[in-house]
């Protein structure tokens, strides 16, 4: 069963295209990683799906959530889906929580709003949810204010709110970037367990390839607002075909590099929105670019489940 079907999603901020012709699909229980550098368009893709684009943002294309077209829905009906059918966890848990409301009340409000239960029941369910996200002594935590919790505990509360109504789609935007490694590790295990138990489709946005490799089955690589490569994590990471994916992997792979030596990297820096080259968006940073890269490469299939948008893909994925 398809949970999320995105086709031809294009996002403009004012007149600048920031996400272009993005297609992907999440089946029930899928875990898909969306990777790329900051400024690649990952977060805007997620916000477009949630219908939460800021100010001058405007999306076109088709977004289907469990068979229902939602891209054209009026805000009032979309708001009913958010927090119920689809939910999102952001990077900074402190700003995602209301600092002057006890966390138990914040969770029970989400429950009450969508499940139509009384205050008492909502409260009881909220405590249960806090227990589900493995917070110790959930009754006591429920009475605390956000600032009285640690960063990891706050992010668990946010996750509890996101999972409160058993959404079919969970979008996480860098949910562990602000956390310590040991806390991140526990948080990732928790997310993994929750989505597995409930069959939730997971779209996990991260710039950390190691985290994505640990959590996701499939990966979408984004650059310049376009998907440049996609496929099963195991295949894409073991044998990247797009030079950008290969560069990201080389730069990430500190464990395989000889300590104290220079690391392989992607040369240059990601341009600002609107300043990407015409044709292939990556060609000005690419050491494999050819004259035909002035033409935009289509996202073509390579192998059974993989696609790459490149005129001169890395052969077999070996980094030179």
């Amino acid at each position: 069963m398809t949970t999320l079907d995105v086709a031809g999603l294009t996002v403009h901020m004012g007149s600048v295209p920031v996400v272009s012709e993005v297609d992907f699909r999440l089946e029930r229980g899928d875990r898909v990683g969306l990777i790329g550098e900051s400024g690649a368009g990952k977060s805007l893709t997620a916000l477009a799906i949630m219908g939460l684009l800021p100010g001058s943002g405007r999306a076109t294309g088709r977004i289907e959530l469990s068979g229902q077209e939602i891209q054209e829905l009026p805000e009032r009906r979309l708001a009913r889906l958010r927090g119920a059918t689809m939910a999102m966890v952001f990077q900074e848990p402190m700003t995602a929580l209301d600092p002057v409301m006890r966390v138990g009340r914040q969770v029970s409000e989400v429950v009450g709003r969508h499940q139509g239960v009384g205050r008492r029941d909502a409260r009881r369910i909220a405590v249960e949810l806090l227990r589900t996200v493995e917070l110790p002594e959930p009754e006591r935590i429920a009475r605390r204010y956000p600032h009285q919790l640690s960063g990891g505990q706050r992010q668990r509360v946010v996750l509890a709110m996101a999972m409160a109504n058993e959404p079919e789609l969970l979008i996480c935007d860098e949910p562990t970037t602000a956390l310590d490694v040991t806390v991140q590790d526990r948080m990732l295990r928790l997310i993994s367990r929750l989505v597995e138990e409930r069959g939730t489709a997971l779209l996990f946005i991260s710039h950390d390839l190691a985290v994505v490799s640990a959590l996701c089955d499939r990966v979408l690589v984004m650059y310049g607002g376009r998907i440049v490569e996609s496929g099963p994590v195991a295949e894409v990471f073991a044998a990247p075909r797009h030079p950008y994916t290969a560069g990201l992997l080389a730069a990430s792979d500190l464990a395989d590099a000889v300590p104290g030596t220079r690391l392989l990297t992607v040369p240059g820096a990601i341009p600002e929105f609107g300043a990407f080259p015409s044709g292939c968006v990556f060609r000005d940073r690419c050491d494999r670019s050819l004259p035909e890269c002035a033409q935009l490469p289509a996202l073509g299939t390579v192998g059974a489940e993989r696609s790459v948008a490149c005129h001169n893909p890395v052969p077999g994925g070996v980094i030179r």
């Binding site: 004012g14 600048v16 001058s56």
Partner: peptide
């Protein structure tokens, strides 16, 4: 830069 921002 969007037209709206420039206008503002």
């Amino acid at each position: 830069m969007s037209a709206a921002v420039i206008a503002v």
